[in-house]
C-alpha cells in the first residue's frame, strides 16, 4: 500500500503538434478540513492538499492553490497544448508536507 496516494493521471500517449489535449487527474486524500470529528469525538486535525504544480518538460504550465472546499479525493481536469515530446510532471503537496508526484510521457508527432 506504499503507493496509496499515487495520483492517477490520464494523458494521451501521442498527440499531433499543436493539438490541445485534456489532462485528467485524481489523488486519494481525505482533505481534512479540521472540523470533522472521529468516532471517539476527537477533532481530526486539518490537512488538505493545498498546491498542485504541473510542469511540461520542466516548464511551469498550470497550477492550483486549494482551500478546504475542495472535495475529498480531489479530481481535476485541465488542458495542455502539444508542443514537443517529453514529460508532464504533476506534483501535489499537502499541509503536512507530503508530496504526491507522477510523471507522464507524451509523444508529439509532426
Amino acid at each position: 500500500m506504499a503507493d496509496e496516494n499515487k495520483p492517477r493521471v490520464r494523458v494521451p500517449k501521442t498527440a499531433k503538434k499543436g493539438e490541445i489535449f485534456e489532462v485528467k487527474t485524481s489523488v486519494t486524500h481525505p482533505m481534512e478540513n479540521g472540523s470533522r470529528k472521529d468516532k471517539d469525538g476527537n477533532v481530526v486535525p486539518r490537512n488538505i492538499i493545498n498546491k498542485l504544480v504541473v510542469k511540461y518538460n520542466g516548464k511551469d504550465v498550470f497550477g492550483g492553490d486549494f482551500g478546504t472546499a475542495v472535495s475529498a479525493n480531489p479530481f481535476l481536469s485541465f488542458h495542455l497544448k502539444a508542443e514537443e515530446s517529453g514529460k508532464i510532471d504533476l506534483t501535489w503537496t499537502d499541509e503536512s508536507g507530503a508530496v504526491f508526484t507522477t510523471t507522464e510521457t507524451i509523444t508529439v508527432e509532426g
Binding site: 499515487k6 492517477r8 490520464r10 485528467k24 487527474t25 485524481s26 486519494t28 479525493n73 479530481f75 481536469s77
Partner: peptide
C-alpha cells in the same frame, strides 16, 4: 463512468 473521475478506481489500483 470515467475511471479517473471515479475515486473508487483508486481502490482498484491499491
Amino acid at each position: 463512468d470515467d475511471e479517473i473521475m471515479n475515486p473508487g478506481f483508486a481502490w482498484v489500483e491499491r
